[in-house]
């Protein structure tokens, strides 16, 4: 049984859309409310490793990709979700579930202004203390010199 079919069996209708870009690269769209259940299943049941997350400012909202790697086969499954409220994007934290998510959530919080609800230590990771608040470098409205 392939990992993809295991995910589809385990998460059922929580997978809104799925596409395979190349033999070992899969992108699975989910709703933001299902993130914790999906991540828990993929990390704890299927034993995948959280590589990192990519946050992105898109015209439709703030998009987050959670890249999971199945090291046995070299496949990478990226969970994709969209936070439509660009003013106050927020999502449940994964840091309590996966310790490796701690830093990348802090980074997305300071770079894109995404609020990770329940994060145990949501403070700046890379930006300086004196960097102005509400100025998120990876948002498109941010002008860099």
């Amino acid at each position: 049984m392939t990992a993809l079919s295991e995910i589809k069996d385990g998460l059922g209708e929580k997978i809104v859309d799925c596409y395979q870009h190349s033999p070992k690269r899969f992108y699975l769209k989910i709703k933001s409310k299902d993130l914790k259940v999906a991540a828990d299943f993929i990390f704890n049941q299927l034993k995948m490793r959280l590589v990192t997350c990519t946050g992105q400012d898109t015209p439709q909202g703030i998009e987050i990709l959670y890249h999971f790697s199945l090291d046995k086969t070299g496949e990478i499954f990226s969970l994709r979700l969209l936070l439509e409220d660009k003013k106050n994007p927020s999502i449940e934290t994964l840091a309590l579930l996966i310790k490796g998510a701690d830093w990348i959530e802090r980074e997305m919080w300071e770079m894109l202004g995404i609020n990770f609800i329940g994060h145990p230590n949501l403070k700046r990771l890379l930006l300086a203390e004196e960097w102005p608040k509400e100025n998120f470098p990876l948002r498109h409205e941010h002008e860099h010199e």
Binding site: H21, R25, V51, T52, T54, Q56, L65, H67, S78
Partner: peptide, 30 residues
Amino acid sequence: GEGIGHVEAPRGECFHYVRSDGTNRPVRHK
């Protein structure tokens, strides 16, 4: 489109995600 590349650097896995909108620059590079 979008693509993922990773290599085993001397210190471990080095991971890059690139998204293109068809212009000559990446629209996102993680």
